[in-house]
């Protein structure tokens, strides 16, 4: 069972990406499960993912990068025992720090393969967020330990902007693979799905 995080700031397109990737991954005959953590007990994402007929577990009432880490470990263990998917995609809340979640995935021994940390960067609103001092610091913390950074929403931004983001993101995290995607119209998702699977 391989565990992959699809992280990123609020509204960057994590859920949209996960739903689109799920279709591609299912076509490749891989069994898939999704864990969504939304802050609060009245989540929306899990219900939407569920409408697509996907196997989804939600962890609510807090954040899985801090107080709910134990729930995440438990949920992963339970999925492995009773459903045994090939791939689990985790959507942390938009205000989670992906590296903290990664640390706890590493602690689980039982047949869990740790996949990449994928951080979705919002190509539409990214620049605006990075202009805000505090948000910019926070977003950089989300990006800094990513293995893959996917610049999303490239359907609504121009080439120059994409290039600008690529340079900016490379400076923040020189080790990450940088992809350009549109979760909405599917650009770049085959490649991202391959990276999730392999």
């Amino acid at each position: 069972m391989k565990v992959v995080q699809i992280a990123g700031f609020l509204g960057s397109g994590k859920t949209t990406t996960i739903i689109a990737l799920s279709n591609i991954i299912a076509r490749k005959n891989k069994k898939l499960a999704i864990i969504v953590n939304e802050i609060g007990e009245i989540p929306v994402d899990a219900r939407i993912i569920n409408e697509y007929g996907l196997k989804v577990r939600e962890i609510g009432g807090g954040c899985i990068c801090c107080e709910l880490l134990v729930n995440l470990v438990y949920t992963l263990d339970e999925l492995r025992k009773f459903y045994n998917p090939d791939i689990v995609m985790i959507e942390p809340s938009g205000v989670a720090i992906p590296s903290s979640i990664d640390d706890s995935i590493k602690m689980i021994k039982n047949d869990i393969e740790k996949g990449p940390i994928i951080v979705i960067f919002d190509g539409e609103r990214g620049e605006e967020l990075l202009l805000d001092d505090e948000l910019s610091k926070f977003i950089k913390r989300q990006l800094i330990n990513a293995n893959i950074i996917a610049i999303n929403k490239i359907d609504v931004i121009n080439e120059d902007k994409i290039k600008y983001y690529e340079e900016l993101l490379r400076a923040i995290n020189p080790n990450a693979i940088i992809l350009k995607i549109s979760a909405k119209n599917g650009i770049g998702l085959e490649l991202l799905a391959d990276m999730v699977i392999k």
Partner: peptide, 16 residues
């Protein structure tokens, strides 16, 4: 300190 306090994010949800 909680990470999220850095950005003062708060939330509200309801089901009706």
């Amino acid at each position: 300190m909680n990470f999220h306090e850095e950005i003062l994010a708060n939330g509200y949800g309801c089901e009706l």
